Simulated scan of single mutants.
Amino acid sequence: MSLYAGMFFCDVDGTILPHGQREVSSDFFSLVHEAKKKGYLFCISSGRFHLSLLPLFEQVKDEVVFSASNGCRILYQGQELLPNHTIQTSDARQITNDLLSLGAIPLLSGKKAIHLPFSALEQEKSKGYLSKGFTQTFDAFSDIDDEILQITGVCRQNKAAILNQSRKTWAARYHVVTTGKELFDICPTSKGESLLAISSYFGLSRQNTYAFGDDENDIPMLGAAGKGYLMGTAHETLKAQEFEHCHDVVGTVNAILLQ
Rank of each mutant, 00 (worst) to 15 (best):
L163C: 09
G213Q: 02
G203I: 10
Q157R: 15
R173W: 02
F141I: 15
I151L: 08
D218L: 05
E216S: 03
I198Y: 01
C155M: 03
K181R: 15
D215T: 14
L130E: 11
F202L: 03
E147I: 06
P220Y: 07
K132G: 03
A161F: 06
K159I: 06
V177C: 07
L149G: 07
R167Q: 14
D139I: 13
T135G: 07
E147K: 10
A172M: 12
T189W: 00
K125M: 08
E182R: 14
I219R: 04
Q165T: 15
G228V: 12
T178I: 06
K181S: 13
A225P: 04
D139G: 07
Y210P: 01
G180D: 11
G223D: 12
E216C: 03
F212H: 00
K181G: 09
C187A: 06
E193L: 07
A171E: 12
C155R: 00
I144M: 08
S190W: 02
Q165V: 11
L222K: 05
T152C: 10
Q150V: 08
R206L: 09
Y129M: 11
Y201D: 10
R167S: 05
S126P: 07
Y201V: 13
I162A: 07
T169V: 12
K132P: 02
S194D: 06
D146A: 12
A224Y: 05
N217V: 10
R173K: 15
K125L: 08
N208I: 04
L183P: 02
S205E: 10
T169N: 13
E182K: 13
C187G: 03
G133Q: 15
F141C: 12
L183Y: 09
L163H: 12
G133R: 14
V176S: 07
A140P: 04
